[in-house]
Design a protein around this nucleic acid. Structure first.
Lengths: 144, 144
DNA sequence: GTCATAATATTGATATATCAAATAATGATT
DNA sequence: AATCATTATTTGATATATCAATATTATGAC
């Protein structure tokens, strides 16, 4: 019977993250049009830690190197990021947010905070702490 | 500060499901070669509930209709599923597992159970129950 | 300083996610 | 029976995930 409990646990885990992502994307699209949550996540990370390499960004947002390359391409094409030569390492680019990128993040932020509050409404702090602990343990167990 | 806790919660939620999926896919690929976890999930669902329409399968495994179409295509191409005419509804196909498909599921099952045990090692039943409750609440909150 | 190796990023191929549009068949209405 | 709305599925377009291969630059051993 533990097996069944385990199965339903991973089912609800998948379902919860997908539900959240769908809700988040829907509300963002409604307010801001053609931008994805992943693109915003990468943009925010580049603003917060401008010194990171693309590979470090990938690790930070838990994405693949190749995905980061493509997401950055889209952000440049959309005018939220600017590529220029890197001063000391010619393998890299210097990537800086444009003023449009900065503005976008400022405007989107309240929506993101709201989405998290909506998703966690009615969840007690202690429950959340336990859930966090369980999830962290899963990460640990799966990374060995 | 609640904001920060919320942010890290969704971070660890993303990270845990990705860690689990990566571990699961890696072990499956090592043992069984070119088959994805998603393909196995759909195949198992069709075995367990053969009467379901593709749309009902999509709901059951929490995937898009279009994804189900493409996953089924791959399963047919790989010889695990057989398409034939549906007896009463010509919009649909009758989809049945081949003996290769049946065999595959039987062989894969222990590995799937093992993966779940690995991922949940050291997690107490009560903690898991609370985590499940939190995740279910998130699903509820995001589906309104 | 040269060379092997490592680091950084890109590209290609395939699978999946999502939305919208298209096809085709069914069921209900008149 | 012809029409119309609904249902079931597929297809197209774009974004992301993953793995493998490639290109370019940097660095360390010698």
């Amino acid at each position: 019977m533990t097996e069944k409990l385990n199965a339903t646990f991973f089912y609800i885990l998948e379902k919860s993250i997908k539900s959240y992502r769908q809700m988040a994307q829907r509300t963002i699209s409604d307010e801001f049009g053609s931008i994805t949550v992943d693109q915003l996540l990468v943009l925010q990370t580049m603003k917060d830690q401008p010194e990171l390499t693309q590979q470090q960004i990938a690790v930070a947002v838990f994405k693949d190197f190749a995905s980061i390359t493509r997401i950055i391409d889209l952000l440049v094409r959309k005018g939220y990021l600017k590529r220029s030569d890197h001063p000391t390492d010619r393998r890299r680019f210097a990537l800086t947010l444009t003023s449009e990128g900065e503005d976008l993040l400022i405007q989107v932020r309240p929506r993101i905070l709201k989405n998290r509050r909506i998703a966690l409404e009615g969840v007690e702090e202690e429950e959340m702490a336990i859930a966090r602990k369980v999830l962290a343990r899963i990460v640990e167990n799966c990374s060995k």
